[in-house]
Amino acid sequence: MDPQINKSAPMIELRNVSKWYDSFQALKDVSLTVNKGERVVICGPSGSGKSTAIRCINRLEQHQSGEILVEGVELTADFKNIELIRREVGMVFQQFNLFPHLTILQNLTLAPRRVRKMPRAQAEELAMRYLTRVRIAEQAHKYPAQLSGGQQQRVAIARALCMEPQVMLFDEPTSALDPEMIKEVLDVMVELAEEHMTMICVTHEMGFARTVADRVVFMDHGQVVEVAPPAEFFASPKNERTRLFLGQLLKH
């Protein structure tokens, strides 16, 4: 492990992070600390900056002011830093983003072999272990397009896990799925949470938030409006905007 990483620091720390797309400010002074083993759910209306916030954590987007620290290492433009952090942070996307030209097994072994320089046999063994965990081992030699949406998303989770990350980021992992497939993906995520993986999930699955989250974060207009444990968050939200949002969610 790299000596730079500080094991006792919080897993992820955002300090007054702001981000602009041209002149539009997508994040306004966002601060958030996530400790090791903590599970945080982020919710909020469309366009509130949820994706932008978590994409800044592994620098798929670049913030312009404030600080982001992952295990005490600050994210700067330094390539070495970025690559170090991306190895520690896994990400699952709304649209799965599997590599269509590779088989399921190859999707899983690509990064371990290239980034972690793992021998092929070892990478394949690792991949099969995670495929078994997400209950999809029998599909290992198919291509992504031959799988259902729920299966693809479980593969995407396994692909991120193959890098054995310290943190997992989820950006609306069930929003692109047909209703009957949502549960199989949530089940995998719940299991992961039970193993004390540090997780940040952008999701509107409030059942998941209630049972799994340690804290729920509500964002609106690029700001963190409210942070509370789920019981408190759902029972007695303090902020007017949170109440409005929850009211609309429950109407569905």
Partner: peptide, 26 residues
């Protein structure tokens, strides 16, 4: 699609690796 760049970057791949293993084959 941009998701292919995002996914490979999030796995810690370098620019050259992204190009060679993910983008160019497609």
């Amino acid at each position: 699609p941009r998701g292919q760049w995002d996914a490979s970057a999030s796995l810690g791949m370098t620019f050259v690796q992204q190009m060679r293993d993910v983008i160019l084959p497609q």
